[in-house]
Structure formats: C-alpha cells, structure tokens
Design a protein around this nucleic acid. Structure first.
Lengths: 209, 209
DNA sequence: CAGGAGTTTGAACGGTAATTCAAAATTTGA
DNA sequence: TCAAATTTTGAATTACCGTTCAAACTCCTG
C-alpha cells in the first residue's frame, strides 16, 4: 500500500499528483544521466534537483534501474510515434528521412533534453535490456526501410543501408554528449543542418554514378 | 622503487617486458571500457582478461583513472598523426576529409578496437580533463578547417561548419557503441561508406543551390 | 645455484552509494 | 478540525570496489 511502483486505488487527485512527481523525477534523472552517465549519477544527484532526499525516490520507483528503464521507454515511445508520422505525412523517401532526422534531433534536444536511448543499455537487467534493444531495433529497421525504399525508386544512390543507418543515428545519438540547452547552437538549426547533411549524402544526383 | 608508473633504471630486457605488460593492460582496459563504460568496468574485469588479480595492475599504473588517461592519450596521438598526414598528402579538401574519416574509422575499429575518445572524459581529474579536451578540440578544429576551406574554394556548399563537424565525428564516435570485431560489417567497408556518405552530404554539386 | 630485482598475490581497509525501514511530517477528504 | 492516507525523512544495513601493504613467488643475472 505504499512502496515502489505498485499502483493502488486512490483518489484521482492523489494519483495525479503522484504522476506529476514521477514525471519530475524522470526528468531530473534524464538530465543527470545525460550529463554524467548512469553509473556516475547517484540517487542523491537526482533527488537534490527536486529538493528531496534520495529515499523519497523509493516511493515512486522500486530501484535505480527502474528509473533508467522508464527513461528509455519514454524516449522509444517518442521515436515510435515520430516514425509513424513520417510514413503517413510524406511520399518522397528523402522528405521522410529528413523529417525523421529533424524530429529525432528535436526529441534529443527539446522534449527529453537528451535521450538516454543513447545511454548504457547494459545497465539494465537482461529482460529489460532485451525489450529495449528490440524496440530500438524496430526503430532502426524503420529508418533502414526508408533508405532501401529510396534506393529502389531512385531517390537514393546504392549504399549499404545498414551502415547508412548507423551513420545517421550515430550523429544524432552523439548529440547527447555535447549539446547543452542555451549554447551557441540552436536546436532547430541543428535539426535542419543534420537533415541536409545526412540526407544529402544519400541522394542520387551527381555526375556519373 | 617498485610501485606505480615511476620509471627506474633497470635492464633493457626487463623494461621491455614491463612495457609489453602495460600495453596488454591498456588493451584489455580499452576493450572493457568500450563494452561497459568506465564506471561499470572494475579493475577485476580488466585483470581477469589477463589472468591476473586486480592488485597486480597497481604495479603498472598508480590508479584506475591513470589507465583511462593513457587510453585517451594513445587515441589522440593517433588522430593527431592522421590529421597531419591528411594535410600533407592531398590537395582537394573533399579528398582530405574523406581520408580523415576513413582513417579515423580505422583507428576506431582496428588499431584501438574502439577509441575511448568516445568515453567519459568527465571521469578524469580536472587537469587531465582539460588536457584531453584541449587535444580533442585541436582535432575538431582540424576537421573544421578542412570544411571551411572547402567551402571557400567551392568544393563544399555553405553549411554551419561546427554542426557539420559534430555530425561527422558523432557518426564515427558512435561506432564504439555497436561495432564488434568479427561482425557482419567489415572495417574497411565501414570507412569507405562513412566517407562517401558524410563527404557527399557536403559536396556542392546539385541542382540549384 | 644464490641472491636480488621485479612481479603477483591475498587479506584487509575505507569510502561510497544503493537499499530498507520505522517513525515523523504533510496532505487529503469528510 | 480530525483521522486516515500519503509522502518524506534519517538512521542503519549491506554490498561493492578502489586502494594499500606486507608477504610469497618468479625470473633474471652473475
């Protein structure tokens, strides 16, 4: 009736408040994980940002790993949504890919201020690791499908699509390592430049080839 | 006269052996850091790979941080050498950039099996951190200079060169996260594909713009 | 093969950080 | 305002891991 993530019957008001706190904790954790990495982040670090003691966190999450897990889940849900949008909204694969890149960058910089998609999956338990990796692979396959489709219909030149996906997602994931909100580089510019650069490297329009 | 990294007078044969052991340790550490990250790697992990107990490591390095530091130093020395070569050997900036990318990928995959340039600089002491970051910045400026030069002489289109550098180095650094020697992707192919993709995204040859 | 330099080890120490828990503080709803 | 539910806390527990050190071992050299 009190601990961990077990959800019990309670008034809507209380539930709501609890949800808000959970979100706050997740947010603080996200920021800390991005800045110092999972292992170097202590529960005190996270709690301090909220004016709490670390033991209070146990009221909302069963353990540290669970916090990381939920960070991953949230990020992956964003990416999933974004990929579905890309399929719906565009016909051209180049446009589709550019949209995915721009939006993924936006998720990294704004929504989640640095997605821990980027971070230590290995810190999770084997089962959770498998789940997260499966979701990440699904997203990667989505990007790959766009590239392969674009190669078929002549929008893109012939490349190793697996490697192209790694190049694109590597650029984006690495953002978590250097991006700081309020720095000299603006999020939207970052997204467009990345899209131009990374889609441009695939488009099929030059001299011979 | 026995501990840490203090070098004392001793026979050449002994020194040589000691050097070899140091290199072995560095190699094992590099692999472990790449796979699990610095904080999640214990000295036992590193020692085990060599059939040693963790305490033996203290004969070669004063502490864990020193091992990480030397990993960084080795990587950065490679990159420095590579950048000088690029300047000497080529006239075209596109070729220069392609060379840097290919060679950096090679360093990541072969020479050092995953450069910890990619890893937790924050784990180092402030002084060492400053030193490593300075060296890393020097390398980044080298890449940026190639791009800016290429923009001036018309080889590349107009981009935000800072962002372009982040895209390129992000792709490459991220390799450490997924590359496993002996996997389905070969190192040399990886280098060429990355070079094509990332240089291609900058070249100035399409329709309007 | 003897002696010493060089290397490795096991045991022990100390600090840090995750986790547990019962009690205190706060908030909720009537 | 009061009692019950919920949240937060401080103290205590535990486990892990980097580090120290003296003793044991190995290897080189004369």
């Amino acid at each position: 009736m009190s601990h961990g993530n077990t959800q019990v019957a309670s008034s809507p008001r209380v539930r709501e408040k609890r949800e808000r706190r959970r979100a706050e904790i997740l947010h603080a954790a996200l920021r800390a994980f991005r800045e110092k990495g999972y292992h170097a982040t202590t529960l005190d670090d996270i709690a301090e940002h909220l004016g709490l003691r670390k033991t209070a966190l146990y009221h909302y999450f069963p353990d540290k790993e669970a916090i990381l897990y939920e960070c991953h889940c949230e990020s992956l849900a964003e990416l999933d949504r974004l990929m579905r949008d890309a399929r719906k909204r565009f016909d051209s694969d180049a446009e589709r890919l550019a949209y995915v890149i721009r939006e993924h960058v936006r998720v990294m910089t704004e929504t989640l201020e640095g997605s821990p998609l980027a971070f230590e999956v290995t810190a999770l338990s084997v089962e959770r690791q498998a789940e997260i990796i499966a979701a990440r692979d699904r997203y990667e396959r989505g990007v790959r499908r766009i590239i392969e489709n674009g190669m078929k219909n002549g929008e893109f030149r012939q490349v190793n699509s697996k490697i192209a996906v790694f190049a694109i997602l590597g650029s984006i994931n690495w953002i978590a390592r250097w991006y700081r909100p309020g720095g000299s580089i603006h999020a939207s510019e970052l997204g467009s430049e990345f899209a131009d650069h990374l889609v441009g490297g695939l488009t099929c329009d030059r001299r011979g080839e």
